[in-house]
């Protein structure tokens, strides 16, 4: 049975799109059929982070309005053939995201794919509401920073009240993904610790993604970080998160960057 996952946060810039791309690619690498859907109408970026920006013809709104068929709007990833992207519209208004239209598209995606990953826009308005509405599972992306934790708490409240599952009296399975975490700063007491965030939000932890230069490098070249350099710390952290999403019980560790011989020789710091 297909699973619909929303990647959400409330706050902007915490890593929703990066995480959607990285998790989508890592899931596809297990052989599952995966689609990543951009809900950020007017400010799409998932296409750019996935390196598909030159190939966008149709988008989610075109499909909702009947201007294109779903298969015409889906872009097949060039690296993984079982990974597709459904881009958001760059030119239309987000009011074009109608409840019925989104429901139909999600239902059709459920038939074609094993995993439907919805990349939510920031905020709590129509876009985020539509992105989370059909979710079976929510990945709440949070930075160890006060405003991000507060906004995540707000989003958790919405997941428990406004989604289709909530309205049916069921629960959306919620997971916390802590991103941009710096263990050294947390140890010095200059950053919220994992336990602090977990205690406040009290949802289970899916993974901890360490702050890393590799994330920017991967988005520069338009490749999900899990594909761009699978050996790096954030890539391994996302791979672990995906294994937990698939039900494996893995101990939570924060992967560290493996320093190369040249780096060690010159005493280069790992960021």
């Amino acid at each position: 049975m297909a699973k619909v996952v929303v990647v959400t946060s409330g706050k902007g810039g915490v890593g929703k799109t990066t995480s959607t791309a990285a998790i989508g690619a890592a899931l596809a690498q297990t052989g599952a059929k995966v689609v990543v859907v951009d809900f950020d109408v007017g400010l799409r970026n998932l296409d750019l982070v996935m390196g598909a920006e030159r190939r966008v013809v149709f988008d989610l709104i075109n499909v909702i309005q009947g201007d294109a068929r779903l298969h015409q709007a889906l872009i097949r990833d060039k690296r993984l053939e079982n990974l597709s992207i459904l881009p958001a519209s760059q030119t239309r208004d987000k009011d074009a995201l109608t409840t019925d239209g989104v429901a139909k598209v999600i239902a059709e995606l459920r038939e074609k794919f094993d995993w439907v990953l919805c990349d939510s826009p920031a905020g709590i308005e129509r876009g985020p509401a539509m992105a989370m509405h059909h979710a079976d599972i929510a990945i709440v992306v949070t930075n160890p920073e006060v405003s991000s934790v507060r906004d995540s708490d707000r989003i958790i409240g919405l997941l428990d009240s406004k989604t289709e599952r909530a309205q049916r009296g069921e629960r959306v399975e919620k997971h916390l993904l802590l991103t941009r975490y710096d263990p050294a700063r947390a140890a010095r007491g200059d950053m919220l610790k994992v336990e602090d965030v977990l205690e406040i939000l009290s949802i289970p932890l899916l993974g901890i993604i360490p702050e890393s230069q590799e994330v920017l490098k991967a988005s520069n070249v338009g490749v999900p970080v899990t594909l761009n350099n699978p050996e790096t710390a954030p890539a391994r952290a996302y791979q672990d998160a995906v294994r937990r999403l698939l039900g494996e019980k893995l101990e939570i560790v924060i992967p560290q960057e493996r320093r190369s011989f040249v780096d060690r020789l010159f005493g280069r710091r790992v960021a």
Binding site: L48, G51, R54, Q90, T91, S219, N220, V221, G222
Partner: peptide
Amino acid sequence: TANVARERLQILLAHERST
């Protein structure tokens, strides 16, 4: 990678601005 990023953005934005 920053050079790749700059080139990708230049192409993308040229198209987006024109359409």
